[in-house]
Every structure is written in C-alpha cells, then in structure tokens.
Design a protein around this nucleic acid. Sequence first.
DNA 1: GTCTATAAAGTGATAGAC
DNA 2: GTCTATCACTTTATAGAC
Lengths: 220, 220
Amino acid sequence: MIKRSFKSLPRGVPRKVTATVATKDRILQAAEELFARRGFDGASLRELTSAAGVNLAAVNYHFGCKEKLIEQVLRRRLDLLNTRRMAALDHVEGQHDTTLEQVLDAYIRPALEISYDVGGECFMRMLARAFAERDERLREFLSQNYGHVMRRFAAEFARLLPHLGKVELYWRMDLVTGALTLAMSGFGMIQRAEEVSEQAHHEQTTRHLIRFAAAGLGQP
Amino acid sequence: MIKRSFKSLPRGVPRKVTATVATKDRILQAAEELFARRGFDGASLRELTSAAGVNLAAVNYHFGCKEKLIEQVLRRRLDLLNTRRMAALDHVEGQHDTTLEQVLDAYIRPALEISYDVGGECFMRMLARAFAERDERLREFLSQNYGHVMRRFAAEFARLLPHLGKVELYWRMDLVTGALTLAMSGFGMIQRAEEVSEQAHHEQTTRHLIRFAAAGLGQP
DNA sequence: GTCTATAAAGTGATAGAC
DNA sequence: GTCTATCACTTTATAGAC
C-alpha cells in the first residue's frame, strides 16, 4: 500500500528494488488470522484482501494462487519453529546425561513461545486445522517442512526410551503432539491469575506441559 | 431410493409412514466420509449427493439446509458416544473405591469402540475438524450436545484428584481430549501386528491410551 | 505494483413437474 | 419423494488499463 518506488530519486539516494513491502506482509497477516478463524476453504480471497486493505488481485500477483499463499503463511512461522527447535535440541545434545524432560523442553518451549507472539495463537489454530485436514498436498507440504525435525526428535526419544518399540514411540509422540497442538490452539488454555506476571505464567505453563508429556511418554 | 410407499395396499398389511428410509441414510453416510475428507466447507452438496447416488435436491428436502445436515451427521454418533459414556460412568460410579483408570476407561473405551465401527474413523476425523473450527454456531452446538457429559466426567475427576484446581483440571482434560481425538482420527494410529487378533489389538490400544491419559492427568 | 472489469466455474437453495 | 431446471450468488483467477 505505502508507495516506496520513487521512479526519479535524486542521485545517491539508495533505491528500493522491491517496491512495496507492506502489501505482501499485510496479506500474510490477514491470511493467518482468517485461515485460523474460517479455515482454508472458508476464508475467501475477497474477505482476506478486504481485511488486509489491499486489492483482490494483489494475492495472485504476489503469491500466484491461493494454495501458494497458504504455503507461505504456514512456512513463515513453521521455519521459525523448526529453527528454534533444532537449536534447542543442539544445545541439549551438547550436554552429557541428557534427560527426557530436557528434550521435551526443546520440543515444547519453542512452540509455546511462538504461540505467545502476536498472531501466534492464530498460527497454532491454523496448524491444528492443517493436522485435521486430510488434503494430500497439504500433508505432503507439512511432511516436507516438518518431517526432518520430527525424525531428529524421534531418534533422541528412542535413545532415551530404549524399552519402547518404534511403532509405540511414534504413536506416543502423536499423542503428545495432538495434546500440544489442540491445547495451544487456545481452545481451553489455562488462564493466568491476576497476580502472576505474564512471564511467570508462560514459564509455569511450559513446565506443566513438559511434565504432562514426560509422564505420558516415559512410562513402562 | 427404494420405494416403500404403497398407496393402495391390501387391508391388513402394515403401511410404512416414512416412505423412503434409504435415501436419508445414504446421504448421512456419504456426508460423514466427505466432511471428514474435505471439511465442511470443502465438501459440496453436489459431490456429496453424487457420491450417495441421490438427487441434489434430496439434501434440502430431507434436512432443510447444509448446516442442518452437518448437525445430523454429528449428532448421529455423538448421541451414541454420549449414551455409552454415561452408561459406563454409571457403572463405574456404582462401585466403591472407584479408580482414576476406571473413570478414564469409561471416557476412552466408548470413543475407541465407535472409531472402530464402520465409518467410525471418518466420524472421529470429522470431530477433530470440528474442534479446530472456530465457527461460533458449531461450537455452541457441540457444547450443547457434549457439555453435560464432559461436566459429569470433570466432576468425577475432581473428586479423584482433589489436589488439582478447577482450571488446572479442565486444562489437563483438554490435553487428554486433544491427544485422544487426534490419535483416533487415525493420523498416526498404532499399527496392528499380523499375529495379533483385531479384538486383542483394540483392547491393547485402549489400555495404552488409558495409561497414557492416567499418567498425564494424575501427577502432582 | 495496483487497479477495474470480467471470465469461467462453482455454490446452496428452490419452484414446479412428475 | 424424486426429479430437472434454474436462480442468485460467490468463488478463484486473469487480462489489460494506468
């Protein structure tokens, strides 16, 4: 929306190559919220562009088609989530005597952090939807952008829980992921008491989730 | 489809009041599968009636509108699930020294039983979707047809886990429900080994889920 | 890059014949 | 109860002016 392409700038002033940066971001932001609220099919490009305050044709210009937009919206935070999880796992594996709770911390904490970002809860709700969707293309996209991280965590869990068979382990991880995703999509998130600071509440929630997951994952 | 309205039957032969019973059921069945696969918005009445082998107008004739159809599809198995859960809880509460695992059994076993019925997995996938949907009307419908059962279980859990605050308890129940729903929607269900009978495998899965839930719910 | 206008196909719903 | 035909809209996507 905000014009930044100055066709005739005075010499010496750096010229932006990508003319408008705002439009694309505004679409992504509006899309995240609307997809979370109405679903991928339920949210039309019309309400989306209208909410973003941009022209209808802008979506096709910037993203090609609706499906590519969905991918970009997912990828934006999924990349961040993956990067943070990997970094956290790197850090945990660097120590000796790694515990189950430490690995779960590396898995859960980045997810919660993102869900606390502005718009992050919308993203988590979108992700919950994406899990429930059985659309083949979407699942393939998720597995391509998500699978390698899950496999690294699975390997680490397998090392810490050698008594579990591979099938059993994957199944328990699915249970944990299901609990985590639906919980974070805010459909019944634990409420913060007035006297507790936001920071402290996040830490408390994270600890709760980790212990819930550890209890379920690590039984005989 | 199959005509059963005989306008001029010989006296004494009982006359069916509801003329065709098949069409309605075929729509419900096709709807369950298509809603699970494509979502409530994604599945159109056209593919739905086409898959059911009935006329497009039949949906509006039998159900009024698409939304009412969705409600009927949900209600059909939800009623069954609620009835069975209530009966199981009645039975458990009839005994003294009720354990957490027994109550969880009453909560989890009926859900798994239904998911093993023909078309039951579709239903669970549909339910997972419905949880992720934020549609106000749908949520209200679910709470009206689901809430009283959840409250009874919550009361029982509260009695067995008095050290938990109300907020904490509801939050843990959400985690359990999230895990259960996503797991049963078949997105990563544990596979049955060849040599195990189907019956035994179901029992095994039920026991696993109950213990997972019990471990998560009942910690300090 | 952004706009308008429009194409092309799909949507839920209904009137009215049978 | 079931059918065809159709209404009134909405959808995604694109062509072409600016």
